[in-house]
């Protein structure tokens, strides 16, 4: 028996919206410790890793480890039938091939359940080694989204460089070029509005902007985003999910041959 209950159903909607553009089908792996997902986009350039710890749920029961294959667009559509304040419960039998989403209104005067067929998805888990990153930038998530969107008006590739001076985002295209520099800024009143740069060594990497724009669909999940980079490693773009875990996106760089 699997039973996951979340008072803030809206959170689950945001999680699905953050993944469905990048990944179509994925396995939700549930165990006593929580729910996780690891999947690559169809071109294997980006990887998304989601973790929702069991202690972040209002009720979490998972008697047996389960890997439940779902079409993320179908789940996202289904969750759109829930109100943002609805309590969402996921239920699945140990041997069943369906999952039930139950939506309860906050006043408990409306209860809906939607049953969805599970899919058999063959996917292998990749081992993601622990790495010491050369540069880690924490910044407001809306600012990061804005930068990616603004640069995409000029080019389709971004060079992200971290130096002592700050983090520089550069692009070039047919109509011209653009540079946006963000300096460390920790003097603002609210920590979620600050930009913090931890740099061991300067680093400069090139990425396809369209993936970064897909990642920024996670912006509603967190006020801040953390970007970690090292030469010859995929960058990591992490959005924390309050009290529950994270969604991390790994993006392979473009490399000169």
């Amino acid at each position: 028996m699997l039973e996951l209950r979340l008072l803030q159903g809206g959170l689950l909607k945001k999680v699905l919206e953050a993944m469905r553009e990048l990944v179509t089908d994925a396995n939700f792996d549930c165990s006593r410790s929580g729910c996780s997902l690891q999947a690559m986009d169809s071109s294997h350039v980006a990887l998304v890793a989601l973790l929702l710890r069991s202690d972040g749920f209002d009720h979490f029961r998972c008697d047996r480890n389960r890997s439940m294959g779902m079409n993320l667009n179908h789940v996202a559509k289904l969750l759109r039938c829930a109100g943002n304040d609805d309590i969402v419960t996921l239920k699945a039998d140990d041997d069943g091939d369906t999952v039930t989403f139950m939506f309860e209104s906050p006043k408990q005067d409306k209860i809906a359940d939607f049953e969805m067929k599970l899919m058999d998805i063959q996917s292998e888990h990749l081992g993601i080694p622990e790495a010491e990153y050369q540069a880690i930038v924490k910044m407001p998530s809306q600012e990061f989204a804005r930068i990616c969107r603004d640069l995409s008006t000029i080019g389709d590739t971004v060079v992200i460089s971290v130096t002592k001076e700050g983090v520089k985002f550069s692009t070039k295209g047919d109509i011209g070029s653009a540079n946006i520099v963000c300096r460390q800024n920790t003097t603002v009143d609210k920590p979620e509005e600050s930009t913090v740069i931890e740099m061991k060594d300067p680093v400069s990497l090139t990425f396809a902007l369209r993936y970064l724009i897909s990642f920024t669909k996670a912006t509603p999940l967190s006020n801040t985003v953390t970007v970690s980079m090292s030469s010859d490693l995929p960058m990591v773009v992490e959005y924390k999910i309050a009290d529950m875990g994270y969604i991390r996106y790994y993006l392979a760089p473009k490399i000169d041959e």
Binding site: L47, E124, L126, G127, L233, Y250, A252, P253, I255
Partner: peptide
Amino acid sequence: KPKQQTISRFFAPK
């Protein structure tokens, strides 16, 4: 022109 790498170049199956 820089060439797009894939994730499998960096991470191996478990």
